[in-house]
Structures are given as structure tokens and as C-alpha cells.
Design a protein around this nucleic acid. Structure first.
Lengths: 338, 338
DNA sequence: GTGAAAGCGCTAACAG
DNA sequence: CTGTTAGCGCTTTCAC
């Protein structure tokens, strides 16, 4: 592959001049520029980013790490990040941690080695071990969606308590009293907060908490939603509604119900957080609390950019956006309440 | 961030020795090694990959480009690549082209600049313009799934003609004669081949081809599947079955049918290529031709690795794997055939 | 076993 | 406007 030296020699100028042309510096005579440009093209020159990054000490790219690349909540969030980053000519590089702390650690290490300019992460490892390593290297860091205690940095999320409360109130208003919770692990902040908001509403309405109705799995996935629902159905609990911790869990829930011959919402109502994907734009089904995924990503990128500009020394900002309840076709009054 | 010089100074050795320890070279006295190791840890040293890549002229990472990161066919394929790559300690970096040639071009450029060791791509731009640029730089290249004429390199896919024929035969055996095709663009090899295989079977069975039953959209997406199906329903064609070009299109097809009050498979049968996602493991619905997505990725990585080892000078290999017809619940005999 | 020195391809002062 | 020079942080001969 051609280097800047090859180009310089062929064009009969110094490498500095070539560099100036490549980087669009103004102080080059127009004829020289045109000539160099043509040689550049002729030789199919492609700059070596490793060399450039090394001397510049900047890579012009930020890294993004999300737990589940197949979940539209996260892909939408990433798109928000990309759009903001592209406004400033920054590339974004994406990693999928698969809800596994070990993968998260590996990715973080790779990112550190490559000296990316910053990291936006929806964390998996909730005790902050992985993120401490990031901060130790002074890599500008923004956390999105899931809070991690002990890590003091910019944070963007939505109001999970409020969202859970909206969902719970909606179900109560429909007449439900026995509501099950199918949730991800309580170590992850959003599931903890949603469970808390939910129980708070039950308490406020003097509805006794039945522990056997609250099921927590290791991951917020379809698979787990399915398994937990099977377990719920096998128990002698008799919920008239199910509150799923997120969109993926909700799909698992509905599949398990379908398989058991239980109709939604006729026999049981189902609600959840977040939309499922573009198909739901066409055939919206779930009554759910929609978080502003795109905006969370967009704002996270904005905070990171600000941090990059100020050389890192900004006070940590916490941004909590408002979610919104969208009532659709997966909820109805309980059959027995009539 | 600590450099190798900082570590060397603190440890009282030369940078060469530090480098040897970092890279696990054998010729270092054990006590020296231990000492350097402890200093490395103490200083939280993280090697600068840009510097390393620059001198090594290798990055130990391969790039992967797929058209739709939300489609489980591609995520499964990518997992196959990752597994094979990880066997050889290679990282993989993933890009999502969103079925857009322009994005593909941007990604390819970034990858070239970063001097990755190789590229595995499911191409979008079907005239080979983007890939020519790759070959001009001598970047080891493997094409997966979609063929691109004019680009002579390793290629792994599955037998799309055969798959389409299996699907068509299945429908014919059920008694269908008026079968619609909802497809992605013919510029993309797999859709071209599937359409050909399908029509071939119709011809072989003396079924006249009704052009109004064949609809091609710009992208193989849910959205497009939905829109084409609406168009089909609005026309005066009366198919008893629909052959969707891939899994995403199929979802759009079913949504449009649902919305029109048409039941699958009672009123109309639907088949497609590929599975939809993990949810279909729980509740398999579509009768479809399943391509060995994981194996396609795995073999693609294997070919790339071979090419890397042999310094690029291997003869191009073409690997066409067998797909499999899985009969499930979206197909039945036409109502009118009774 | 260990170190000195050259150089990967590029940018950024500094001169002119 | 243009060129010379000194690194960026690391690996890799080549000596000792």
C-alpha cells in the first residue's frame, strides 16, 4: 500500500505538502494541491490510521457498548448516538456484550488499547469493576440507561420509577389486583427501579404484595421471559395481569401464554417497557411504557462530546428523561372482575 | 497513560525487555519477568495498539460487514465468524451497512484506513464497485451469502436455487397454483436466484407465470414486505400462497395479511427463507428454507484465515452449502382446492 | 538474557 | 507557500 512517501516522491513534493493536501490545510498553492490530489488518486492512496492516531493522540472515534444488539431499544439508542456523533465527524464503533460481564471486559480492553476518544456504555457488570478500569485510564465515559453505583460520570436514562408507576396504575384502573412481575435481575438498576416503582403503587393502593408473583431471571431475554412465565403458570399463583420488565421478556411471556392456550388480553393482560421493533410500528400490540431510546443515545453522545471538548473536566451530569405510557391491545379488564 | 518507556524506567530495564514480557517472549529471566509484570500491573499499563499495529503491519483483527444487524440470519452468521476467528485469537469488528451502498463504502474506507487484516462481507452494492476498492488494496476478502460478479475471491453461500425449488415444490404439493413472490431487488444475487429457482419449478410443472404475482422491492425488510403485500392485495391478483424472499419480508407479509383480516394459513399460505429469531425456537411458525447461517459464517472465516496464512495467494474457493426445508404452520392446502 | 538503535507512516512545530 | 526535522509508542534486528 502506498505511503505518504511514495506519493511525495511521485508528486515531486515533500511529505509535509502531501500531508497538508490530505488534511485539507489551506496553505497550499492551488496548482500544487491539484497535482498532489491527482497523484493521490492515481496511487489509490489510503492514509494509515494507526500512524495518524499515534501522533495525533486522537482517533476521532468513540466506542459504544450495548448488552443486546438484537433489541430494538438498544439499536435505536445507538442510532441516536451515531447521529449526534456524525454531526461532529466522529465515527462510532459498536460492541455487543450479550449481557455478559466477561465480554464487556474484553471489549473494554480492546477499546482501551485502540485509544478511542471516549466510551458510551449500557453496562452489564453492575458493581462497576469494568468501568473503574475505564476511569483509571481517564477515558471519557458516559453511562446510558443503567446506573452503576460508585462510578461518578455523566449518566443518561429515563425515569424508570415513573414508567413503572404508569404501568401499574393503568393495570389497577382496569381492575387488576393480582399482577405478576417478570423481571431481569435486580442487580441491574432499571429492573430494580421498575420493581420498586411497581410495588410502590401497589402499596399506595393497599394491595398486598404476593412474593410468589415476582419472578426475576438472570437476563432480560425472550428465553428467560418464557421460562419464568412457565414457572409462574406451574405455580398456584393466579395473576390476571403480567408486568414484563422489558420488551424481550414480554415476548417470552406471550409465547409461554400462547403455548398454554391463554389468550392475551382476554384471559390475562400483559404490559412491558419499550417497543419491540419496527414491526410494532405496523401492528402495535403491547401496552407499554416507551422510553425515549433515541434521545437517550443522542443526549449521551452530546454529553460525551462536551466532555471531549472540555478535556474531560466537566462536572458529571445526570439526565433523566420522561417515559410515556402507550395503551394498546395487550391489556384489558380482568375477565373475573365483571 | 503509561507508555512502555515509563514502565521500563520504573522497572529499571530497557524497553526491549518490557516489550518481551508484554509479548510473552521466552528469553527473559524469570525474576526479571516477575518484576516487570508487577510494575506493569502497578502502572495499569495498557499497550497502544496503534503503535503496535504500525510496526507489526498487522492488527490481529478482521472486519465484518453485514446489511442488517437486526436480522437473526446475519447475527447468526456473524457468530459463526466470531467463533472461528476467536479460535485463532483474532478480534472481529462489525459494521452494519443497513442495506445501503453508501454506508458500505464509508465502512470499507474506515476499515482500509485502520489496516485490518481481512474483510468478510455480505455485500449490498452488487456491481462490485466497493469491493474493487478492497481488492485494489490487496486486503484479503471473503464474500458471504450474496455473490457479486466481477469480484474473484473466496465465496460462501447456500444453494438458493435448490432452496427456492424445495419451497415451490412444497407449495405445489399442497395444491397451490397461484403463488405470489414478495422479493428483495433482483440486483442482489440471492433474490435473483430464488426467483429463478421458483420460476423454474413453475415452468417444469406447466404453470403459467403471472407477472402481476411477482413483486420486487428495494430492500428485503419488514417494511417493504408489508408494502408489497398491500400492493398485491390491492391488485386483482388472487394468490393462494405467498413466497417471501426472506424472513424480514415474510413478517411484513403476515402483518399486512393480518391487517386485511386474512388468516395464515387458512386463507393463504406463506413461506420464506430463513428463521426469524430466537422466538421462533419457542414458537416456530413459518414453513421456511433454513440456510446454515452459522456454518456460512464459520466457513467464511476459515477461508479468510487460510488466505491470511498463505499471504493471500490461494485460489478463490466457492463453497455452496445445502439449505433445508422445514415445514411448519404457515402453509396448508388452499381453501379453494377442496 | 539484555539493551541500543532503527524505523513503522504520519503530524506538527519550526525555518525559510 | 514549502521543506526539514523531531517525535508518537512500539517491535525488531543486531550486538554484547
Amino acid at each position: 500500500m502506498a505511503t505518504i512517501y511514495d506519493v511525495a516522491k511521485r508528486a515531486g513534493v515533500s511529505i509535509t505538502t502531501v500531508s497538508r493536501v490530505i488534511n485539507n490545510y489551506p496553505n497550499v498553492k492551488e496548482t500544487t494541491r491539484q497535482h498532489v490530489l491527482s497523484v493521490l488518486k492515481e496511487m489509490s492512496y489510503i492514509p494509515n490510521a494507526n500512524a495518524g492516531n499515534l501522533v495525533r493522540k486522537l482517533t476521532s472515534t468513540i466506542a459504544v457498548l450495548v448488552p443486546d444488539i438484537t433489541n430494538s431499544f438498544f439499536t435505536t439508542l445507538v442510532r441516536g448516538i451515531e447521529d449526534k456523533a456524525n454531526e461532529r465527524e466522529l465515527s462510532v464503533i459498536l460492541g455487543n456484550t450479550d449481557e455478559e460481564a466477561a465480554k464487556e471486559k474484553l471489549y473494554i480492553n480492546k477499546f482501551l488499547e485502540r485509544r478511542f476518544d471516549g466510551l458510551i456504555i449500557v453496562p452489564v457488570e453492575s458493581r462497576g469493576k469494568n468501568l473503574k478500569a475505564v476511569q483509571k485510564q481517564n477515558l471519557p465515559l458516559v453511562i446510558a440507561d443503567r446506573d452503576v453505583e460508585g462510578i461518578n460520570t455523566d449518566f443518561v436514562s429515563s425515569d424508570n420509577w415513573l414508567g413503572a408507576q404508569l404501568l401499574a396504575q393503568h393495570l389497577l384502573e382496569l381492575g387488576h389486583r393480582d399482577i405478576a412481575l417478570i423481571s431481569g435481575p435486580l442487580e441491574i438498576s432499571v429492573f430494580r427501579e421498575r420493581a420498586q416503582g411497581f410495588k410502590m403503587v401497589l402499596n399506595d393502593n393497599n394491595i398486598s404484595i404476593q412474593d410468589e408473583l415476582f419472578l426475576y431471571g438472570p437476563k432480560p431475554s425472550k428465553q428467560v421471559g418464557y421460562e419464568l412465565t412457565r414457572k409462574l403458570l406451574a405455580s398456584d399463583a393466579t395473576p390476571t395481569a403480567i408486568f414484563a420488565g422489558n420488551n424481550s421478556l414480554a415476548i417470552g411471556v406471550v409465547l409461554a401464554l400462547q403455548q398454554a392456550g391463554i389468550k392475551v388480553p382476554r384471559d390475562i393482560s400483559v404490559t412491558c417497557f419499550d417497543d419491540n421493533d419496527s414491526s410494532s410500528t405496523l401492528d402495535p400490540f403491547f401496552t407499554s411504557v416507551i422510553q425515549p431510546a433515541y434521545m437517550i443515545g443522542y443526549m449521551a453522545a452530546e454529553l460525551l462530546l462536551k466532555r471531549l471538548k472540555n478535556n474531560g473536566d466537566t462536572n458529571p451530569t445526570r439526565l433523566i428523561l420522561k417515559p410515556e405510557l402507550i395503551t394498546r391491545h395487550s391489556t384489558a379488564s380482568p375477565a373475573s372482575s365483571s
